Amino acid sequence: MFTHKQLPAGKIVFIGDSITASGRQKDRDELGFGYVRTIRDIYISEGKGAEVRILNRGVNGDRITDLADRWMKDVMEEKPDYLSISIGINDVWRQLDQPEEKQVTPNEFREIYKTLLAETTAGTNARIILMEPTVIEEDLHSEGNSRLIPYVHIIRELAEQYDALLIPVHQVFREFIEQFSEYQLTTDGVHMTSSGNMLLAKTWLEAAGRASQ
């Protein structure tokens, strides 16, 4: 059970791809039906719903290049107290399902991400929260998961460089899959089941709670 003092209060912007969006365009609250809503519901269940405002700015299919195109509107103009970023899956997945596209290499991923974080630290007072990407297929030896490793390492490096809170989602998902392979975290190797969304929310809240103590 999370205590009230463990949950950060204020305006929280969640930005990312379809894992974050999770149908928010079809939701009257614009929170979607994934981990962002679960986090909001836990705030409410802890009696802290009035102390937090959560905005979901996930967009299906986004890569880091797409975040850069909408960063001013969806982040800088919102001036959040907390900014939670979840990106990287599509930067790798597009290499597999649409190899004819211009791809985002690890070096380009790092440089664009660094630019966005530098802009955010210079232009807002937001506490930055970096979520590792989850997995690409629940076979930990898949090509997608192998290609994902450099992107995970980049996010870890950037979290340290920018004094951001790291949410160890990739690590937690790998550990869960190794221990409980009978339970599915994704519907198609990428998008979350309800169990996957719960694990994302739980991992986020535990890390955020420790950081706010």
Score class of each variant (00 low, 15 high):
Leu185Glu: 00
Gly123Pro: 04
Glu138Gln: 10
Glu119Met: 15
Ile136Lys: 00
Ser146Arg: 15
Gln25Thr: 08
Tyr43Arg: 04
Thr38Asn: 01
Asp17Thr: 07
Ile12Asp: 00
Met131Val: 05
Ser142Trp: 07
Arg37Ser: 06
Gly123Leu: 11
Met72Ala: 10
Tyr183Trp: 12
Ser86His: 13
Leu166Trp: 06
Glu77Met: 15
Lys114Thr: 07
Ser142Cys: 13
Val169Leu: 15
Trp71Ser: 04
Ile87Tyr: 05
Met76Glu: 10
Asn125Ser: 12
Thr20Gly: 02
Asn107His: 10
Gln213Ser: 13
Ile136Val: 00
Ile54Pro: 00
Arg40Phe: 05
Ile42Tyr: 11
Glu100Trp: 14
Glu111Ser: 14
Ser181Ile: 09
Val36Leu: 05
Leu116Met: 06
Arg24Val: 01
Thr38Ser: 02
Glu160Ala: 10
Ile112Ala: 03
Leu117Met: 09
Ile54Phe: 02
Glu100His: 14
Gly209Arg: 03
Phe180Gln: 15
Arg37Ile: 01
His4Val: 11
Ile39Lys: 04
Glu138Val: 03
Glu137Thr: 14
Ala159Asp: 03
Leu140Pro: 05
Phe109Asn: 05
Asp188Trp: 01
Gln171His: 14
Val169Glu: 12
Leu158Phe: 04
Phe109Gly: 04
Ser181Glu: 14
Glu30Leu: 12
Gly189Arg: 01
Gln179Ile: 07
Ala201Met: 11
Ser194Ile: 08
Val75Asn: 01
Ala126Ile: 00
Ser86Lys: 10
Gly209Ala: 14
Thr65Val: 12
Asn90Lys: 03
Ile42Met: 12
Ser146Val: 13
Gln103Asn: 10
Gly196Gln: 01
Gly209Ser: 11
Gly49Phe: 02
Ser84Tyr: 02
Pro106Lys: 08
Ser181Tyr: 13
Asp69Gly: 09
Phe14Gly: 04
Leu31Pro: 03
Leu96Asn: 06
Ile149Asp: 09
Ile89Gly: 02
Ile89Pro: 06
Asp62Pro: 04
Glu138Gly: 00
Tyr113Glu: 02
Asp91Arg: 00
Gly196Pro: 08
Met76Thr: 11
Ala68Glu: 12
Val172Asp: 07
